[in-house]
Lab assay of single mutants.
Amino acid sequence: MLYRITVRNADGEKLEIVVEMSEDEVRALAEELRKAGYEVRVEPIPEGEEP
C-alpha cells in the first residue's frame, strides 16, 4: 500500500515522502523516526488516488 510520510525536525523543516510498504513496515519506520526525535505523520493513500 502507498503511504505519505511527513517528517519534521526540531527546527520545523519538513520532508514529505511517498512509500510503498506494508502497514507493519511503515509503523516500524515511524517509530524509529520518533525515537530519533522527529515528529512523524503517516497517512495511507487510498487506491486510485494520486500520491
Rank of each mutant, 00 (worst) to 15 (best):
I17M: 11
I45Q: 06
E32T: 15
V19E: 01
E32I: 15
E43H: 11
Y38K: 03
D11A: 14
E43T: 12
I5S: 00
L15M: 08
V26C: 03
G37T: 01
V18P: 01
Y3A: 01
Y3P: 00
P46V: 13
L29G: 01
E49L: 14
V42Q: 01
P44M: 10
V19Q: 03
L2D: 01
L33V: 01
S22F: 08
V26M: 07
R34K: 07
P44C: 06
Y3E: 00
A30L: 11
N9Q: 08
N9P: 03
R27M: 08
R8C: 05
E32L: 15
N9W: 10
E47D: 13
N9G: 09
I5F: 05
R27W: 14
E23I: 08
G37V: 01
E31Q: 14
P46W: 11
T6V: 08
P51T: 09
Y38L: 05
E16A: 10
A10Y: 14
L33K: 01
R8G: 06
L2H: 06
E20L: 13
R27L: 10
E32W: 15
Y3K: 01
A28C: 02
M21R: 03
G37S: 02
D24A: 07
I17T: 07
E13I: 14
I5V: 11
P51M: 02
T6A: 03
I17F: 08
I45G: 03
K14H: 10
E16F: 14
S22D: 05
K35G: 06
V19A: 06
E43S: 10
I17H: 03
G48R: 07
V18W: 08
R34W: 05
I17P: 00
E47N: 15
L2R: 15
A36T: 08
I45N: 07
A36S: 10
G37E: 01
P44K: 12
R41D: 05
E47R: 12
G12M: 05
I45K: 05
M21H: 02
P44G: 07
R27P: 01
V7N: 00
A10C: 06
R41N: 08
E13A: 14
E50F: 10
V40Q: 00
E16S: 09
R4N: 02
V40H: 00
A10P: 10
K35D: 02
D11Q: 13
E39L: 12
V42S: 01
L29C: 03
Y38A: 04
Y3F: 12
L33I: 05
N9K: 15
A30M: 07
L33N: 00
E32G: 10
G12C: 11
R4E: 01
P51G: 08
S22G: 08
I17V: 05
I17K: 04
R27N: 09
